[in-house]
Amino acid sequence: MARDRNVWPVTVTYRPHRRRDELLMHQVHAAHHVLARRGGPACPGAFPQLKAITRFICPCCGQVVDADQASEDHAPIQAGTFTMGPATTTVLTCAPCNNLPGRSYEAAAGHNDKAPELDLDLPGMNSAVYGRRRVQTHRTLRLFLVREETPFVRTDFKAGFLLAFAALGYEWALSPGARLIAPSLHPDAPEPAPAHAYLMRSTIDSPLQGENVVMEVADPQACVIVRAATGLSVVLPAAGRTSVPTVQGDLRARFYPWPSTGSPGSTGGHVDREHRAGHLFHLDFCDAPDHVG
Rank of each mutant, 00 (worst) to 15 (best):
G169P: 00
C61S: 09
D205L: 09
E106A: 12
A107S: 07
A159W: 00
R142Q: 09
E274G: 08
E191H: 11
R252S: 14
K158H: 02
L50T: 13
F281V: 10
V12N: 04
T88C: 01
R134C: 07
L141I: 06
A2C: 01
N99M: 07
L163V: 13
R38H: 09
H196C: 12
N99T: 14
K114M: 10
V247A: 11
D119Q: 11
E106L: 14
V64K: 09
V28D: 05
L143R: 15
C60D: 09
V244I: 11
N212R: 08
A288S: 11
N99C: 05
M215L: 15
L232N: 01
S175V: 12
Q136W: 02
P9S: 12
Y198F: 13
P41L: 07
A277F: 00
R3Q: 12
A79L: 13
R154V: 02
L280I: 07
A108R: 14
A229H: 07
A95V: 01
S71R: 08
D156H: 06
A239P: 00
Q69R: 11
R19H: 06
P44V: 12
A173N: 06
F161P: 00
V129G: 03
A2P: 03
L35I: 13
S127A: 12
H138R: 13
P237N: 13
C60A: 15
C43S: 13
P96S: 05
H291G: 05
P183F: 06
F281N: 09
R55W: 03
H111N: 15
Y105R: 08
F161L: 13
V247L: 10
V271P: 03
H74Y: 08
P245R: 12
A197S: 15
V12T: 14
L143S: 08
H33M: 08
C94D: 05
P48K: 04
G131I: 04
D66L: 06
F161T: 01
A164T: 10
A42P: 00
D272C: 05
G269K: 08
E106V: 14
S206A: 11
V213T: 13
H275Q: 10
D119S: 07
E216K: 11
L24S: 02
A2F: 01
H282V: 11
D4R: 13
R103A: 14
A52R: 14
S263Y: 02
G231N: 08
V10R: 15
F165Q: 05
D21W: 02
K158A: 04
I57L: 12
A115P: 00
D4N: 15
A229R: 13
A178T: 07
E149Q: 15
A182R: 07
G240L: 06
V244T: 10
R276V: 07
S71G: 01
F281K: 04
T246Y: 04
A109M: 02
C61G: 07
L236T: 14
P96N: 06
S263H: 05
